[in-house]
Design a protein around this nucleic acid. Structure first.
Lengths: 207, 207
DNA sequence: ACGTTTGTGTACTGAACAGTCAATAACGCT
DNA sequence: AGCGTTATTGACTGTTCAGTACACAAACGT
């Protein structure tokens, strides 16, 4: 009955996300978003309600992908849980888990957590962004904690350890590598950090 | 022979740092800096060469404080090294080590590493900021690694562990807590994360 | 006491900004 | 084929921005 939109909503939000990643929120103008997505200003306002709306909806899209991909990578039988955790840690540090469309040579900018970067930049003054980012993180904590519990059941991780605490710690390391990566350190150093964290997981009871 | 300046340079840079912390670089206008420091635009340009100059020199000031305080907290005899490491970890997570002037109830915004926040926001497009932030981090890595080596000499940490790797890991955790804090998590959670990291340090050889 | 030198405050400028609006284009239904 | 509905576009507006220029104030040497 009416004119259909000529753009793919998810594709546009993904392009906007890339732009926000590259320049930050305050460093990105509406014209930048327009250029990155190919949409005119009017369309952006009609479809997403302006700059802030684009950010919020781009974060929601990121959250959806995250909530689908990360638990899928981590969930599974108890036997391979430790190995899945290891793989996830290494991939997360290099931004692979979400990079369904990123070239094999994953770049640093794409690796850093989008939600984390936005939360650090404007989360203090933007409650909605902070809430979205916190939700993102909570989903990851649950997925990692469940994987840790699986590894505990399989006898790979000390059953006396608190699975949720370990999950928070591992994800804090991952978020930390985003910052360390921003300092200019290369993938080799980040891999080293991730491996060190993995190696320190409590493997057997020390009582 | 000429009129002396009426402001204290370090005090002004510190006020500007607080403003940058609160609003980010792109979210802070020169007028904001002017209001935060009490200096007029003209004085700011004459003394610091504009917004970018203020940032760079504020980061340099931060770097100086960091380079003086952190090694001082960590250096010392081998016997107390592990305890100093523990104390540093907890303080860093709550922003105490640099808070010479911050009220006892340290706030989250002041805790996050200034250099890390700036590097994540504009480091990708500002080589000078990235370099300064990386220097900051390098100083901390050296100080922490030296403290780890002291603890190893004292028999508190597994001598087979690579001290530098452990230092990178611990500092990555600290930087990670800056992001986790931005998600809105309280000091209790951050303390928990820091304690978990400390508890996982390799205490005895496992060969 | 005066003049030079430097710090300080304010008014100004051109550019960039976020957001709005009216005109146009494309589709499905009748 | 025509009409109503919705997407799309690009120009427009008022505001804010970083940076500059200029006038004034203060201190010291002479």
């Amino acid at each position: 009955m009416a004119r259909p939109r000529t753009f793919d909503r998810d594709h546009v939000l993904h392009a906007a996300e890339r732009q926000f990643r590259e320049s930050g929120y305050n460093g990105t103008s509406v014209d930048d978003i327009s250029a990155a997505t190919g949409l005119g200003r009017g369309s952006l306002y009609a479809a997403f309600d302006g700059k802030h709306g684009v950010l919020v909806q781009a974060m929601a899209g990121y959250f959806d992908r995250l909530g689908n991909v990360a638990p899928k990578v981590l969930a599974g039988p108890d036997e391979g849980a430790l190995e899945r955790l290891h793989g996830y840690l290494l991939r997360a540090v290099h931004g692979v888990p979400l990079a369904d469309d990123v070239s094999p040579a994953s770049d640093r900018a794409a690796a850093a957590c989008f939600a984390g970067k936005m939360a650090l930049e404007i989360g203090a003054s933007d409650a909605e962004v902070q809430r979205l980012a916190a939700e993102c993180f909570a989903v990851l904590v649950m997925a990692v904690a469940e994987c840790v519990r699986a590894a505990q059941r399989n006898g790979d991780i000390d059953p006396d350890a608190d699975a949720e605490d370990l999950a928070y710690l591992l994800l804090t390391v991952i978020r930390g590598t985003d910052v360390v990566g921003a300092y200019g350190h290369g993938p080799a150093r980040l891999t080293q950090i991730a491996e060190s964290a993995f190696a320190l997981l409590p493997r057997v009871s020390r009582r």
